[in-house]
């Protein structure tokens, strides 16, 4: 500790004379002349927007996680009671397990599929734009419309779209959303379809940045397509792959839309996710909701994801830089 203090003192001692040498250039006037005030003025709208719509709600949510409030009458501070309530809820662990299951399935299907699709599309010589548009189309469809569409596909009767198709090859009919064992994979399938287009576009953009001379050199050396992908494409996409991986994890950990609109967490809580549980805490009770528990669980989720992200980037730093 003594060493640290000494080092700080030295730093400060070095810093003071430098500013003291030029007294006329200190203060807001100088800042204004150099554009600092202008910068602040131009920043102000964004600071206000972020402050009002992001930072203030986040701060308010943190505060609410220590309060009991129905947002109508005055709140009261309850310490860590909300966190204890959430941690004692047996449904929390069901929700965590379901969320991890969704994340795992989404990773297995949702992560490689866009990559493979982008690689194939990058090899296409003609109508590349058409394929890109088709791939991106599901992203343009409003999510609620997409879910309603897929609900028709998932009709559990023999006349349902998927059951009819599978019936031609002697499979099914399957209950899809009505079966606790396959409801979650069914949600992942739709979520993958809905989100893959955006990732494909990112990969396609990244692929254009790969130096063609690398492929030409590899071809001269007699490399086939798989060798080119393995030794050139994937290493060149490494940075993007790392980012999309963590974005996928964070996105799937916050899955809400599909379980909310398809199944409302059913059947028998088999698709209750952490975010759906937060929603239930806040809104299922028509007499005001437990906003304290909802914000407490939100805060816990945010902390877990932040820690995971930090750990992930620390562990992969060497790989992404190499």
């Amino acid at each position: 500790m003594a060493t640290t203090r000494t080092d700080s003192s030295r730093t400060a001692a070095r810093a003071v004379p430098r500013t003291a040498d030029r007294p006329g250039r200190r203060g807001p006037r100088r800042s204004s002349r150099r554009g600092g005030l202008h910068t602040l003025v131009f920043l102000l709208p964004m600071l206000i927007i972020f402050g009002v719509f992001s930072w203030f709600p986040i701060g308010r949510a943190i505060l609410m996680s220590f309060q009991q409030t129905n947002l109508v009458t005055d709140p009261s501070f309850v310490g860590l009671e909300n966190f204890q309530t959430v941690l004692a809820d047996p449904l929390l662990w069901t929700a965590v397990k379901n969320t991890l299951y969704f994340a795992l399935l989404a990773l297995l299907f949702g992560y490689p599929i866009p990559l493979v699709a982008a690689l194939l599309m990058s090899e296409v010589r003609r109508m590349k734009g058409l394929f890109s548009a088709l791939a991106y189309l599901p992203v343009v469809v409003p999510p609620v419309v997409a879910v309603l569409l897929w609900k028709v596909f998932y009709d559990p009767g023999p006349e349902g779209v998927f059951n009819t198709l599978l019936g031609h090859v002697g499979l099914g009919p399957y209950a899809w959303l009505q079966d606790a064992d396959i409801a979650m994979p069914a949600l992942v399938l739709e979520a993958t379809w809905a989100a893959a287009g955006g990732t494909i576009i990112i990969y396609l953009a990244a692929l254009t940045g790969v130096d063609p001379s690398l492929y030409e050199a590899a071809e001269i050396d007699g490399a086939g397509i798989w060798h080119k992908i393995w030794h050139i494409t994937l290493p060149q996409l490494r940075g993007i792959l790392l980012i999309t991986f963590i974005l996928q994890i964070i996105g799937t950990a916050q899955v809400f839309l599909e379980p909310f609109l398809f199944t409302d967490g059913g059947p028998a809580n088999s698709t209750v996710t952490v975010l759906l549980l937060i929603y239930r805490y806040a809104f299922t009770n028509s007499l005001g909701g437990d906003y304290g528990a909802a914000t407490a669980l939100s805060l816990m989720l945010a902390i877990v994801l932040a820690l995971f992200s930090a750990l992930y980037f620390r562990l992969t730093r060497s790989w992404s830089n190499s």
Partner: peptide, 13 residues
């Protein structure tokens, strides 16, 4: 239209 979830949100908001 009263539903448990939307009512809570409207009440709070």
């Amino acid at each position: 239209t009263w539903t448990a979830t939307t009512f809570t949100a409207q009440l709070a908001g």
